[in-house]
């Protein structure tokens, strides 16, 4: 049963991811991307990573792709002319893609690949668990606990990184003219 679901959702994910790259219509591409994200969320569910699955749907499918779609519709990307990549780009993309695939193959099947071992048993959060003995479970609480204790530093660094990215985006998107002043705000008629 689980295998069947795994193959089903993997196929869904891979197929729709492939369709994202080949679909000519940008809206179709965005929709396939959403489908791909949903498929991935299902794979997370099979891994019993419920929290991650929910976040996947919430953040990527629910928020990021809506923005994508918003932009695609606003720009009417249907009408965009198809650009034929030049020779260099094709070569570079081919080389990069092959490298990625071979890397993945090496990691999966190569000698240093992680041994195919049993996953640790994932259990329900015990009723009598206390702060000290929270085990690794599917419960979001244990997830949060790990995040704020063991992985505190990476978590903070990631957060900081995101903050920098956000500030960068704001700075870049704010047009500042040569005099260094911000452009005058457009007057909005107060009703």
């Amino acid at each position: 049963m689980a295998d069947f679901l795994f193959f089903l959702f993997s196929a869904l994910t891979v197929l729709s991811a492939f369709l994202v790259t080949v679909s000519r219509n940008a809206v179709n591409g965005a929709m396939f991307m959403i489908l791909s994200f949903v498929g991935m969320a299902c794979l997370f569910l099979l891994l019993e990573a419920y929290f991650l699955a929910a976040l996947q749907v919430l953040v990527y499918a629910g928020a990021v792709m809506v923005l994508f779609l918003f932009i695609v519709m606003l720009l009417d990307a249907d009408k965009a002319r198809s650009v034929r990549p030049d020779r260099l780009t094709i070569v570079a993309a081919t080389v990069g893609g092959l490298m990625l695939i071979s890397g993945l193959a090496y990691v999966t099947f190569g000698p240093s690949a992680a041994p195919s071992t049993e996953l640790p048993a994932i259990t329900e959060m015990p009723q009598n668990a206390t702060a000290e003995n929270i085990p690794f479970t599917t419960a979001s609480r244990s997830f949060g606990y790990g995040l704020f204790t063991k992985y505190m530093l990476p978590f903070q660094v990631t957060g900081f990184l995101l903050l920098i990215a956000m500030i960068g985006v704001i700075v870049l998107s704010k047009k500042i003219d040569a005099s260094g002043d911000e452009p005058a705000k457009q007057k909005v008629a107060k009703s």
Binding site: M31, F51, V57, L58, G62, A63, V66, L69, M125, T138
Partner: peptide
């Protein structure tokens, strides 16, 4: 366990109906 997240996640998908319909 993730009830509220589940609701938020699927609630956020509701917008697609309107966006896609409008488009």
């Amino acid at each position: 366990d993730i009830g509220i997240l589940f609701i938020l996640a699927f609630g956020s998908l509701g917008v697609y109906g309107i966006v896609i319909g409008g488009w």
